[in-house]
Write a protein that binds this DNA or RNA. Structure first.
Length: 486
RNA sequence: GGCGCCGUACCCAAGUGGUAAGGGAGAGGUCUGCAAAACCUUUAUGCGGCGGUUCGAAUCCGCCCGGCGCCUCCA
């Protein structure tokens, strides 16, 4: 069954066929690093992380580029508008590059916590000024851009496909009340490729048009093509970037090279909070660092993947609590499975746990092949989880090997592809010889002595107090196991 | 005003023509000294409303109601 993806450019699902056999070149718009990342970033980058993981799992050699925007986002439409990094640098009384550095680290810290694999290259906009100037020059030479008062603008009327991605026309845009007419622009929808820097603008570079800084859109075109070539397979990003950002990227890139830019445009939907759009400008965004104080990052990841990447995701405490319970259930299954494997390895067992694993696997892959339907894939893992739990509760002596194939499938799909099963979350059995484990085992031994003597007040106290410090005990038939809880 | 999306149980959320996945929460039961975990049973004759097409619709079409997004920076 072939992989099918929803291509925004065509506004429908189509079979995924990379330009080069067995190879996928992919670019996703990264963050502007002027503040801590929020849950919206998490949805976007977790979604594309799974897409990358799945493409690799499917056998493609994937080159994944994700930029870091550290200059150029103007606030407002006027020349006086300052960029976000500059604004933040004034607030924090730090150099803009220091702001960029700090929030870039913060970003990766959060993404690492979420289990998002690092992109192959994370190019910085400020590190590619030369490439951007070169592209602007090409656009002027070919007549697609013009200089005006030290700035350079793209002439949207020269690009007939402008508006194709976001399904709008220049006429509509002109009628729109929000596109203000700019004195130096020939058309209100013309966008800046290069902006003249005012004297107080710290982020500035020399260019053929004077001292200035690059427009926002140009960095993604310049950097994606530098590392992936003039035409590549996938360009991803948030739905909110469809217009104007991606529209402008297409206009610039196609005009500069005369070749198609991107084959598949993938857009993730946005996060809402209590039903309302979350945005930086509205100030109602929840940073990941705050979210992680309340919820394990893996719970956040699981929560995100439990809805489709093209659906909006409403963030609420109730929904997160639900996700927490669900992930715990899945984790418990893996933990029980591993505990049982550890026991089975100590004994000679002949019973075989027979589950139609191929069928489960096939259904998960079918779900993923259908435009990365992670909620469906997760649902199937839950079905498998249920069957495994039911089998384990029969208390038969299953052989280690028959248990291991099940564990490996969970690891392969839930761990490798979806990234929702981590070793950390499930290896809680008291088999490792660290001090913490030894101490807990000691307490368990003491408690079980108390239980034998029917001193339940003592045994319950031990269990309650351990729970308070984050360790939960579970009494099995002939042993007591423990796990860390958050 | 233009373009577009969504409305499925108490909550979250798949399903886009063949008779409603999955998770959480709730209820009952099994196991347990008690818990926890797990298992079993249970919770939408119905998918915003009204029409239409069809042998058959949550799924397609039309209208209406409600919510949201983009058109300005945002993932």
């Amino acid at each position: 069954m072939p992989l099918v993806v929803y291509n925004t450019l065509k506004r429908k699902k189509e079979e995924f066929k990379p330009l080069r056999e067995g190879e996928v070149r992919m670019y996703v718009c990264g963050p502007t690093v002027y503040s801590h990342s929020h849950i919206g970033h998490a949805k976007s980058y977790v979604s594309f992380d799974v897409i990358v993981r799945y493409l690799r799992y499917s056998g493609y050699k994937v080159t994944y580029i994700q930029n870091i925007t550290d200059v150029g986002h103007l606030l407002g439409e006027t020349n006086e508008g300052e960029d976000r990094l500059l604004k933040q640098s004034k607030i924090e009384q730090k150099h803009p590059m220091q702001i960029a550095e700090e929030y870039t680290r913060s970003y990766f810290e959060d993404m690492d916590a979420l289990g998002v694999l690092r992109p192959d290259i994370s190019p910085r906009a400020t590190g590619h000024i030369t490439e951007q100037i070169e592209m602007v020059r090409q656009l002027i030479d070919k007549g697609y851009a013009y200089e005006a008062k030290g700035s350079v603008y793209f002439d949207v009327r020269k690009f007939s496909d402008y508006g194709k991605l976001s399904n709008r026309t220049l006429d509509e845009m002109q009628e729109g009340t929000r596109v203000g007419v700019r004195g130096e622009k020939r058309h209100p929808a013309d966008f800046a490729l290069w902006k003249k820097a005012e004297p107080e603008h710290i982020m500035r570079w020399p260019s053929p048009w004077g001292v200035g800084f690059p427009g926002w859109h140009i960095e993604c075109s310049a950097m994606s093509m530098k590392y992936l070539g003039e035409t590549f397979d996938i360009h991803g990003g948030g739905l909110d970037n469809q217009f104007p950002h991606h529209e402008c990227e297409i206009a610039q890139s196609v005009s500069a090279t005369g070749k198609p830019f991107v084959k598949y445009w993938l857009h993730n939907n946005l996060v809402t909070v209590n039903g309302k759009k979350m945005s930086k400008s509205l100030g109602n965004f929840i940073t990941l660092k705050d979210a992680f104080k309340k919820y394990d990052p893996l719970v956040v990841r699981f929560f995100i993947l439990q809805s489709h990447y093209r659906s909006t995701l409403d963030f609420s405490d109730e929904a997160l609590a639900g996700a927490k319970g669900g992930l715990e259930k899945l984790s418990n299954t893996i933990r029980n499975l591993r505990t049982e494997i550890a026991k089975a390895e100590q004994e000679k067992r002949t019973a075989s746990l027979s589950i139609d694993l191929e069928s489960y696997k096939k259904r998960v892959l079918e779900a993923m092949d259908d435009d990365f339907n992670t909620p469906q894939a997760i649902a199937i893992l839950f079905e498998l989880s249920k069957e495994v739990n039911a089998a384990l509760s029969l208390d038969k002596k299953y052989s280690a090997s028959s248990l291991q194939v099940v564990e490996r499938l969970f690891q392969e799909l839930g761990g490798g592809v979806l990234g929702i099963i981590s070793d950390k979350a499930v290896t809680t059995v008291s088999v490792d010889g660290n001090v913490e484990g030894d101490l807990v085992n000691l307490l368990i031994a003491v408690r079980n002595e108390a239980r034998k003597a029917k001193l339940f007040a003592v045994s319950d106290m031990i269990r309650d107090r351990l729970k308070e410090i984050g360790i939960a005990l579970e009494d099995k038939k002939d042993e007591t196991v423990w796990k860390k809880i958050s």
